[in-house]
C-alpha cells in the first residue's frame, strides 16, 4: 500500500510517500501565498520524482498549519501527532521530539509505542522560534544559513538577557556597537533560543533520547546549545524538515 503525507508549514511545504513501511521519498518547496496550490504542487513533484501517479496512492493525510486546506487529503491530522509518528518511525528509541519551525516551537513526549504522551507549544511570543533567529540575522546583516557554522568558532558567548524579541534585538545591536565578536553574539543568540525552548519543554518532563526536527534543526549551533542546556546529547533528525510529512504518510496507512 502506498500512502502520502503533506505538511504545509508557514514557510515551506513538504511531502513524503511511504510504501509498506518504507520511505520512498520526500520533497520540500516554499509555501508561497497560495496554500492549497502548494499542497497540490508538492504532491505532484514527488509523484513525478517517484514515477507514480496519484491513483496508486491509497490514502493521503495532511498536516501543518495549512492541513485543512488540502482538498485531496483523506484526513487532516495535527503536526503534533505526525511529528511523533515520524520520529518514532525513524528511530523507535526516541522519547522526545523538539520541533522548532518558523512560527512555532513544540516539545512532544512519546511512549514506547510511538503515541503522544504529552506536548507543549510556545505561546504567541516569537522568542523560541525560527522567527527570532530571522530577526537577529537581519539585525546582524548575516545570512541565517551561516549562523550555525559561525557560532561553532565562538570562544565565548555574549549574554543576551532579554527574552522579548524586540528587546533582544536592541541588545544585539548594542553588542555589535561595543565590538563584541560576531561569533560570540551568535552563540549568545543560540543560547537564548535554547533556554526558552528548554524551559518550555521542561514543563512536560522530557526524556532522552531527544531528536530535533523542524527547519531550525539544520542550525548546528542551536542543536548544540539545546543539548548543552539539557545536559544530554541531541540528534538532529536526518529528515528534520520532512519528519512531519513522513509521519502523516505513515498515519495515512493506519486508522488513527
Amino acid at each position: 500500500m502506498i500512502t502520502a503525507g503533506i505538511d504545509i508549514g508557514s514557510i515551506s511545504t513538504k511531502a513524503a510517500i511511504v510504501k509498506d513501511g518504507i520511505l520512498l521519498g520526500s520533497v520540500v518547496i516554499p509555501t508561497g501565498y497560495n496554500v492549497s496550490k502548494a499542497g497540490e504542487k508538492v504532491f505532484q513533484i514527488l509523484l513525478d520524482q517517484l514515477e507514480l501517479n496519484s491513483g496508486e496512492v491509497t490514502s493521503v493525510v495532511s498536516t501543518g498549519y495549512g492541513r485543512n486546506r488540502v482538498e485531496f487529503a483523506d484526513k487532516a491530522v495535527t503536526e503534533i501527532t505526525c511529528h511523533a509518528t515520524g520520529a518514532y518511525f525513524l528511530n523507535p528509541e526516541i522519547r522526545t521530539v523538539i520541533d522548532i519551525g518558523g512560527q512555532d516551537s513544540k516539545a512532544i513526549v512519546i511512549d514506547e509505542n510511538g503515541r503522544v504522551m504529552d506536548f507543549i507549544m510556545n505561546d504567541k511570543c516569537a522568542a523560541g522560534t525560527g522567527r527570532f533567529l530571522e530577526v537577529m540575522a537581519r539585525a546582524m546583516e548575516i545570512d541565517l544559513d551561516e549562523f550555525g557554522q559561525i557560532s561553532l568558532s565562538a570562544r565565548s558567548s555574549a549574554r543576551i538577557s532579554s527574552l522579548c524579541t524586540v528587546f533582544a534585538e536592541t541588545e544585539v545591536i548594542s553588542l555589535i556597537s561595543t565590538g563584541e565578536p560576531r561569533s560570540s553574539i551568535i552563540a549568545g543568540i543560540h543560547e537564548s533560543i535554547a533556554s526558552r525552548v528548554v524551559a518550555m519543554g521542561r514543563r512536560i518532563k522530557m526524556e532522552a533520547p531527544v531528536v530535533m526536527t523542524g527547519g531550525v534543526a539544520k542550525n548546528i549551533g542551536v542543536v548544540h546549545a539545546i543539548g548543552k542546556k539539557m545536559d544530554s546529547d541531541i540528534a538532529a533528525s536526518e529528515h528534520a524538515q520532512t519528519n512531519g510529512a513522513i509521519g502523516a504518510a505513515l498515519l495515512a496507512g493506519k486508522n488513527i
Binding site: 491530522v77 495535527t78 503534533i80 504522551m117 507549544m121
Partner: peptide, 12 residues
C-alpha cells in the same frame, strides 16, 4: 494555533 492544540489533544 489554539485549534491545532485542541485537535492534537483529541488525537492524544
Amino acid at each position: 494555533a489554539h485549534i491545532t492544540r485542541v485537535e492534537a489533544f483529541s488525537e492524544m
